[in-house]
Design a protein around this nucleic acid. Structure first.
Length: 341
DNA sequence: CCTCCACCGGAACGGAGGGGGA
DNA sequence: TCCCCCTCCGTTCCGGTGGAGG
């Protein structure tokens, strides 16, 4: 078994890695601590809403504070990603599962309300911090109401969309009106560079990557720290596989554009042919819904695809917007679509 | 003010596919 | 293995909406 020459610890190049210090997020860190730290003194913690573009440290920061709290208080805590568990049943089920509840859910189909009772009983009278990540992907917001009604509980809601709270049911919105809103602006290139150099110091053998090379990666990441770290991972792994002693400029030169491209493709490869055709059609600029459907029908004929009805087209568009590949402007019938960003 | 038109989106349905239990 | 149930998906149906044009 040969020793790695570039990568010392690959774990530090993943999104699961929680660094033991967070770079350029002091304000946000203090704000989240202020919301939650009352539990240390056995006081009610406040709800918080973290919003900002992808890769701005929302998730990382929430997990960091949870970790910190685990050491300083006995409060129970749980992290759920709503994209993985979008419904009421699934969320409650995941919470129980992550808190160590073992039960056979399939037996006679357990009603959702029973899950809620189970959770209340499990929490007893203890404080509970629940992080709901990607809360804009939530399908049924009633579950928020359920959880807000559990005493001694605080929610940390995370979203890319600053208006997520405003879209909730009015009863839930009023309960969350007092939540602390914490904005996560995109990182500047220098800040990304600092984050990368911190990660590199954990993950890479010292001296294998130069400051100017980190800066180069930072520049193409457009303020998205997750993308930047991912690019650093791809570059490092390539260097490792090529069995070189250090990362060279020419390696970066050849790998970086391909890596950025493959990251973009990753997002679109789960799409069906119709949605890919829609993305293609939107490349020439924004189009209103009606003409887009007509153009798509034409493409379908040319490519000998099975025709789809207009309702199906609208469902496909919903999903494209939901996954943020396409942005929609205008409401109802006067909506136009364009490529996101 | 009324009707038409084009599009919106919820509800329900049926077929396909997956997973667990007998 | 078969069977049942659940979930997912595209489709059908249809009431709603608001500008255009009489």
């Amino acid at each position: 078994m040969e020793e790695n020459r570039i990568i010392r610890s690959s774990e530090a190049l993943t999104t699961f890695f929680i660094p033991n210090k967070l770079v350029h997020r002091d304000g946000q860190l203090k704000a989240i601590r202020d919301s939650l730290n009352p539990v240390i003194k056995n006081l009610q913690p406040r709800n918080a809403f973290l919003y900002g573009k992808p890769g701005t440290g929302k998730t990382c920061m929430a997990r960091y504070v949870l970790e910190e709290l685990r050491e300083n208080s006995s409060a129970k805590q749980c992290y759920i990603n709503c994209w993985e568990a979008p419904g009421r049943f699934k969320i409650l089920y995941s919470i129980l599962e992550k808190m160590g509840q073992t039960f056979s859910i399939h037996r006679k189909g357990m009603p959702t309300d029973e899950l809620l009772d189970l959770l209340k009983r499990k929490l007893q009278d203890e404080y509970f911090i629940l992080v709901l990540d990607e809360v804009d992907q939530l399908e049924d917001d009633k579950v928020l109401y359920d959880i807000l009604n559990i005493p001694k509980t605080a929610l940390i809601l995370i979203s890319n969309d600053p208006t997520s709270l405003a879209q909730l049911d009015s009863r839930i919105r009023s309960r969350l009106a007092s939540a602390d809103s914490i904005e996560f602006p995109a990182y500047k290139i220098d800040e990304i560079k600092d984050i990368l150099s911190d990660r590199a110091s954990w993950a890479l053998v010292p001296g294998t990557i130069a400051k100017t090379q980190l800066e180069r990666i930072a520049r193409v990441s457009a303020g998205d720290a997750r993308l930047a770290i991912d690019l650093l991972r791809i570059v490092s792994e390539t260097a490792e596989n090529q069995d070189v002693e250090k990362i060279t400029d020419s390696l970066i030169q050849s790998v970086l554009p391909k890596a950025v491209e493959s990251k973009k493709e990753e997002k679109t490869e789960t799409l069906n042919p119709y949605q890919k055709a829609v993305l293609d059609l939107l490349k020439s600029g924004k189009v209103d819904s009606g003409t887009l459907y007509q153009k798509l029908s034409e493409t379908i004929r040319k490519q000998n695809l099975e025709p789809i009805v207009d309702r199906t087209f609208r469902k496909y568009m919903d999903r494209l917007v939901q996954s943020r590949l396409v942005s929609a402007s205008g409401t109802g019938r006067w909506r136009t679509y364009s490529i996101a960003e």
